[in-house]
Design a binder for these strands. Structure first.
Lengths: 355, 355
DNA sequence: TTGTACGCGTTATCAT
DNA sequence: ATGATAACGCGTACAA
């Protein structure tokens, strides 16, 4: 497999120039390193004249503080961790989260360090402890399902590492959570479908135990109730947020004597599966069946017809989490940040055929 | 000094315990820190008895070396960087790459640090220099299009930071590249389509200037030639690896007087667009038109019918890159690692209708 | 085979 | 407002 080309030259360590240190800056600006430190960290009590001189030196030498020295000497390591479990790491959801975090990092001089834990490994607490113990991460962003695991939370608490949870299942004392109102979002979507004239609306649940999945289901129920529709247990099937589970769920729904005229899946991947299954059953979308998803992921726009779905502002959620972690306020009030969702109507939904 | 770190964000009930340092381990094992260091770093010249004592102490204290101290004191920071440009960061391609890198990191005690640069910002070199300068990353993985930008390469070289390029466009002196054989892969796919009986095979090119895109086109041409088919310029249209460009390309192909019976798109996103457009034109897939993609991304399995495509072993590529970067051999000759591709046949291709 | 002492670049504690 | 100097935890010449 390896094709070795004739090696002409080895690595060019010739031109490698050592980056400037705080001493170099201090010397050039004719101040002490402490003053440089003050300027770089935007601390007060530095004369205007001095500050200007230092900043010029910084610019001239392209000085950037060394990440390791900082991490070693202080509590502000400028490293933010994203902790995710391997199975979920490939999703567009995590990717979007990362993009949000990255843009914020770049703006504020932080770095993103991604750590994975194997959810299937029993000793999760040990894994997290081990990761965080000597990393001195300034903060950690937790995603589902990790954010709802006691072992993870406890390990983080013991290490004294601040963390923010994204869309966790349950509230916990002393945590900060960022989320949308999943209940309201599902309520809105269901109400929209009812408004189109659908009276029999199928539902594909998200993974059991996921908090957002549960909230969405309850929002669906509430909308049915408010819309004067009965809850029909048959048209609600369990899914697991995967495309595959969506296939199975939709097959079960299509096998019903009395099919729903609309199906609301708990995320876009499962909704896409409904679309695919519909093709096999020769059902025209949206004429014979309306399909709605959740997330507004890439998939929602790539399938045909494009999915009506509910957009989560994932990047904004990531940025909110970053803000919380980078502003080290010493008042540790647990709280919840709740961002807005948005109904995105596309071609996969329409009024039902008159039968 | 600071025994109790103020938990800025999430409060913990019990006091945080300071993690064990190399001194703690040394004291417990009754050896010097140097010996501990030797054991931890798996260096030779340690007595079996001593090594065992140290390892027990390490275990007992849950000792993990401090990332920052290591980075500060030595060349081996145990940090590997993944450099990607923001527009591309959301793709499944990058996600898969990360998963491969992460699993390797976990196994070998490394950490993954993801850095983004804004490709649209003019001063790319400065961005990269700034990022890498004081980070002392042990190595960097470069993806397209960054891996083909001279400013990026130069900045990395100047900093003396080793890097591996994933599927770069052009060969460069003194670099290490990991890739599949795009030419052969496209050749195989085209030959497969010819084997089905197709005589008129459309092609949607990838972004101009991308090396893999070019190689795939040439593989397509070679297969046509070897299959005794003429090259028809009309059925080759330019795409840009995006879903949108695939829509436009397929519309142009469908507008031809003499349509192709099969279309081979340079990636799955564009192939998915062909599928969608086919629906609008009421073309039955694969009966009236065969469609093939490239990458075997999530999209290929989520559309209907599922795409025949060519799988790139992205995770393996990531792991190969990691291996190269973590084994710091000083005789770093430039070379190329070429991994195998795999033809994945699904429902989007079939023999052409007899007209 | 094992240990001592110093340096890495930064922050933080005191002083002035 | 500014500066001298001690940590921070680990790797590594250099000794023993």
């Amino acid at each position: 497999m390896k094709q070795n080309r004739p090696a002409a030259v080895s690595r060019q360590k010739t031109a490698v120039q050592k980056p400037a240190s705080i001493y170099d800056v201090a010397k050039r600006a004719k101040v002490s390193i402490k003053t440089v430190s003050r300027v770089v960290n935007r601390l007060p009590s530095v004369g205007d004249e001095t500050r200007k001189r230092v900043m010029e030196a910084v610019e001239a030498l392209s000085y950037r503080p060394n990440v390791y020295a900082r991490g070693l000497a202080s509590e502000r390591s400028f490293l933010i961790g994203l902790l995710c479990d391997i199975p979920a790491a490939g999703s567009g959801y995590i990717a979007a989260l990362q993009i949000g975090m990255l843009s914020r990092c770049r703006k504020e001089g932080y770095h993103l360090i991604v750590e994975s834990v194997d959810e299937r490994n029993s000793d999760l607490g040990h894994q997290v402890r081990s990761l965080v113990a000597q990393s001195r991460l300034q903060g950690v962003v937790l995603t589902s399902p990790l954010c709802d695991m006691p072992a993870v939370i406890e390990a983080l608490n013991n290490a004294g590492t601040p963390f923010v949870r994204i869309a966790p299942e349950k509230s916990l004392p002393h945590t900060i959570d960022v989320r949308i109102d999943d209940h309201a979002a599902a309520y809105d979507m269901t109400t929209y479908l009812i408004g189109l004239g659908h009276r029999r609306i199928g539902f594909i649940k998200g993974t059991a135990g996921h908090g957002d999945a549960k909230a969405r289901f309850e929002g669906y129920l509430a909308a049915l109730a408010d819309g004067g529709l009965p809850f029909v247990e048959d048209v609600c099937v369990q899914g697991q947020f995967t495309y595959q589970s969506g296939m199975e769920a939709s097959e079960r729904l299509f096998a019903l004597k009395k099919r729903p005229t609309a199906i609301f899946a708990c995320n876009d991947d499962m909704a896409a599966a409904v679309l695919a299954t519909s093709q096999r059953f020769n059902l025209k979308i949206p004429q014979q069946l309306s399909v709605a998803g959740f997330d507004d992921s890439l998939v929602a726009q790539v399938v045909w017809p494009r999915l009506t779905t509910c957009r989560q502002p994932i990047e904004e959620m990531a940025q909110a989490a970053m803000s919380i972690l980078t502003q080290r306020s010493d008042d540790n009030e647990p709280f919840e940040v709740r961002l807005d969702h948005e109904l995105v109507v596309r071609e996969s939904t329409a009024p039902p055929d008159v039968q």
